[in-house]
Computed example of a mutant assay.
Amino acid sequence: MIEETKITRNYQVTIPAAIRRKLRLRVEDTLIVRLEGDRIILESKRRSITEIRIRLRKRIDWRYVEETIREVTEKE
């Protein structure tokens, strides 16, 4: 997906709506900014399991969730 945006006079950049939706970005989310050669890379910061618990506010078997996360992380 390629989108275009402009830099404002305060050096702010708007992330296009289509990209925000695809990445499920929300107000107050944190992004990681890296420089690779002449490219600026923005990455969504992964949330901790505690932050996910707070956002969901539901009764979920967290042992299962944490075990699944461990399995996926070990495969990477």
Rank of each mutant, 00 (worst) to 15 (best):
D38N: 15
E4N: 09
E66V: 07
R39W: 13
N10E: 14
T30R: 06
T5I: 03
L31E: 04
D61S: 13
V13N: 06
I32Y: 06
R59N: 11
I60W: 04
I19A: 00
Y64D: 08
I7G: 06
L35E: 15
T5G: 10
T14G: 14
P16Q: 01
E43C: 10
V27G: 10
E28C: 07
K58F: 14
E36W: 03
T68D: 09
L35T: 12
K6C: 10
K6G: 09
K45M: 10
N10T: 04
R55F: 11
R39C: 08
I54K: 13
T50H: 14
A18M: 08
E4V: 14
K58L: 14
E51F: 09
R63A: 12
E43N: 11
V65G: 03
E66P: 00
I32S: 07
L23F: 04
I54L: 15
I15Y: 00
I40D: 05
A18T: 11
E66Y: 03
R26F: 10
T8R: 10
T30V: 03
R57D: 11
R34C: 15
V27F: 05
T8K: 13
R46M: 12
R34H: 15
Y11I: 11
I60T: 07
E3D: 08
R63Y: 12
L35P: 03
R55T: 07
T8V: 03
R21Q: 08
V13H: 01
R34D: 13
I49F: 03
T68F: 07
L42M: 07
R57G: 14
T14W: 06
L23P: 00
S48P: 02
L25W: 00
L23I: 06
L35H: 13
E3R: 06
P16C: 05
K45E: 06
K45C: 00
K6F: 08
I32D: 04
R47K: 05
L56G: 04
I52S: 09
W62F: 11
L25D: 06
R39G: 02
L56S: 08
A18Q: 11
L31T: 03
D38F: 15
T30E: 11
R46N: 12
